[in-house]
């Protein structure tokens, strides 16, 4: 059995919300990266919704961090929502929120 990731993107004006469900890891990254690369130039706010995410590994976290750095370079905002307790602990330990706070 293989892990899978489903990515759904919803636009509302300059706001784009990306809903990720399943597993965001080394083996499932491609759909997420494709959606990030396809973000429109007019987007000023990107929200990643993790409510239906079951697991994220270091490669998945790396993609989120890269998005935050890209947002800093291109002057748009990134928000993370729907984070469960395990993910909250993981992001705090690794320093994801420190990067968000520092760059935005």
């Amino acid at each position: 059995m293989y892990d899978t990731l489903t990515v759904e993107k919803k636009h509302d004006g300059d706001q784009c919300t990306i809903y990720v469900s399943g597993v965001l890891d080394y083996s499932t990254m491609d759909p997420f990266n494709e959606e990030i690369e396809a973000l429109h130039h007019g987007v000023n706010n990107v929200t990643i919704n993790f409510e239906s995410l079951e697991f994220i590994d270091s490669t998945g976290i790396g993609a989120i961090i890269n998005l935050v750095h890209e947002a800093n370079d291109k002057q748009f905002k990134v928000e993370l929502e729907g984070i469960n307790d395990d993910m909250q602990d993981l992001f705090e330990t690794i320093g994801v929120f420190q990067i968000l706070d520092s760059l935005q």
């Binding site: 961090i65 705090e92 330990t93 690794i94 320093g95 420190q98 990067i99 760059l103």
Partner: peptide, 12 residues
């Protein structure tokens, strides 16, 4: 004791 990962912030 929490610090940001190596490669996360330039002036960490």
């Amino acid at each position: 004791n929490k610090g940001v990962m190596i490669g996360g912030l330039e002036d960490a």
